[in-house]
Design a protein around this nucleic acid. Structure first.
Lengths: 343, 343
DNA sequence: CAGTATCTGCAAATCGTCTTGCACACCACG
DNA sequence: CGTGGTGTGCAAGACGATTTGCAGATACTG
């Protein structure tokens, strides 16, 4: 038996209980018009007694604002996105925004659907992270006058939308330069498969650093494999089989580097004494393998925070004005795999 | 300047454009009353022309349903929660629910606030994962008649709420038994700090398996440290310093095990020939360290799916009926750290 | 004492959708 | 020609809050 009334109290219930009109209750709540102290107290007591809380749906209906920002990501289980989400939340929650995270399951159809749904729900703003934005996607949002920010690896620096990214090319230049300074050469490079998002950017970073140091790239020492531990093992097996001298390996991400190190050690090489390694992304596993892995930190939480700030800014300015582009710096984290200690 | 009208079309605009009443448009949309084919076509054309989409806020207001479920987690950046989120999404999205993920920043105050806010927004249901539910938390939700399900390590099997958990005690019994069968003894145990959520449960699993095998627990071989890589290193350093014979180490999670293995190898021990290890949680890093780590998989996505199913069920049945409790089985994953191959 | 501010508080309209009660037209049947 | 279905469509009233126009009390001013 429900002793409790199942329906939540409305502002009307409060007004009736306090013996005033709904207007008065609303004014007590919002403070937009003066209300006598006596009346205020009556009203507040009724509110407490009835456990009244304003219905946000009704509020949104009236005010046309939902105090909600949506974060859309391709796959929340991919390591990078949770950190981005935390950065965004930290920035936006204090301003009274709730963050709803939506996962598109790596499926463009689901992405389109999600975008439509959040548009129908009239979120105040959207942060897309980790996508190539299609013009249809953008049209859905702009058509509903919903501001959005694009972040992540594929965010177009030159696009017409606000965007945030980290400069991966520069990041790979840093690791390459680091290995050149410490060991000279010859250097091998293990990249991701072409077309896999950041692969081209990262490889171009390697090449640029080599060129800047006046070193030629030996194409026999360039391998491209899936961004995985197994990929790294395979790449190193191939490289070592060629029996060419190699002093260090620049890897395009940490999984490849960790797999590569494992293979090198299986083949009797000492890391970093015989062969040094660097990775990219600074994943947790890199701190737990032996030797610990030199990598590049791209400050995902900061990327998230930047997205949030851009969105806030856009919320204030409306759709007008130029698109803003923010680049987040990366940082080298030197560990044992490249000789360790300091940078 | 704005060629586009910034306001989205409403059902009224459609009606005016098609020369019919809003009722008719609504009936075309919902199909709840027959509408002549000619009228239907007129209306549909107007809808397309105007790009009309029903305002979900207004819909929710009217229907008292938001088609939204909230997932609340302590910290989305903690490895386990994204997988849970994926499981939930997979189960709930096909049923037309949107999933909003909320992060409480490991802060009970934020948790209370988030719960209040999602209540105010009238989500249809809530999944709490990874919390100790306080009676206040529950009261907020039940007071608003919002069904919820509690999942995760601390979900109370005997509590009055629907809940899902994996049997960690059984999981640790499995690893302990596995090591006993392979190596006999003596066995050491490295657990988490007492009071840190699952620590007590996991330790009791170890003890139960030892008792079942008729083996005494040597308390000198029991260490308790933070659930971290550093904790594992420290624990092994302490244990090895005692200079007692140890054949294998049961660790309460993978981070501890990986750190412990690293320390053991630094001290010149071979893993698993001199000292075998097992972990718990089956994190990715365990597949990348040398030797690879034997662990326990607890099927987080399946836990998520179960939560979702329980919630759906509750959504259908309403608040009545008994609380349901689901336990998700765990599975041993044997890798090199305990001798490898097969189970 | 009349005239004018300043407080208070109410009634009613609004946000966008869905649903219910009616009404009108048309057809068929006895 | 009445009677009773079907189709078809409109007007009006929720849902729960906010805001605006008004009006009755007071209090202050000349």
């Amino acid at each position: 038996m429900d002793t409790e009334d199942t329906r939540r109290a409305t502002i009307g219930d409060v007004a009736a209980h306090a013996g005033v009109s709904v207007t008065t209750v609303s004014h007590v709540l919002s403070g937009r018009r003066p209300v006598s102290t006596a009346t205020q107290q009556k009203v507040r007591r009724s509110i407490d007694l009835l456990g009244f809380r304003p219905n946000e749906i009704a509020r949104s209906m009236r005010s046309q604002r939902t105090h909600t920002a949506a974060l859309v990501v391709p796959n929340i289980a991919h390591v990078v996105y949770p950190f981005v989400a935390r950065g965004i939340t930290e920035e936006l929650r204090p301003l009274g925004y709730q963050i709803s995270i939506y996962d598109t399951d790596d499926d463009p159809v689901v992405k389109a659907d999600v975008l439509q749904v959040i548009t129908d729900r009239r979120v105040d703003g959207v942060i897309l992270f980790g996508f190539d934005i299609t013009s249809t996607d953008a049209a859905v949002l702009t058509g509903a006058s919903i501001p959005f920010v694009n972040g992540g690896l594929n965010a177009e620096v030159d696009g017409p939308y606000d965007c945030v990214r980290s400069d991966q090319r520069a990041g790979l230049e840093i690791t390459t330069r680091h290995l050149i300074e410490r060991f000279g050469g010859p250097l091998a490079f293990v990249g991701g498969l072409p077309g896999d998002g950041p692969a081209d950017l990262r490889e171009s970073g390697f090449r640029r650093a080599m060129a800047a140091a006046g070193l030629p790239v030996d194409e026999r020492l360039v391998a491209r494999v899936p961004y995985s531990w197994e990929g790294g093992r395979e790449a190193l097996a191939q490289l070592l089989a060629k029996d060419l001298p190699i002093r260090a390996v620049v890897c395009a991400n940490d999984l490849i580097a960790i797999g590569g190190m494992a293979m090198a050690r299986e083949r009797g090489l000492r890391v970093p004494e015989d062969l040094a390694f660097t990775g990219y992304d600074n994943i947790e596993a890199g701190t737990m393998v032996v030797p610990t892995l030199t990598s590049v930190e791209s400050f995902l939480d900061e990327q998230g925070r930047s997205c949030a700030r851009l969105l806030i800014d856009r919320l204030g300015r409306g759709y007008g004005g130029p698109a803003r582009h923010v680049s987040i710096d990366t940082a080298l984290v030197v560990r044992a795999s490249s000789g360790g200690t300091g940078s």
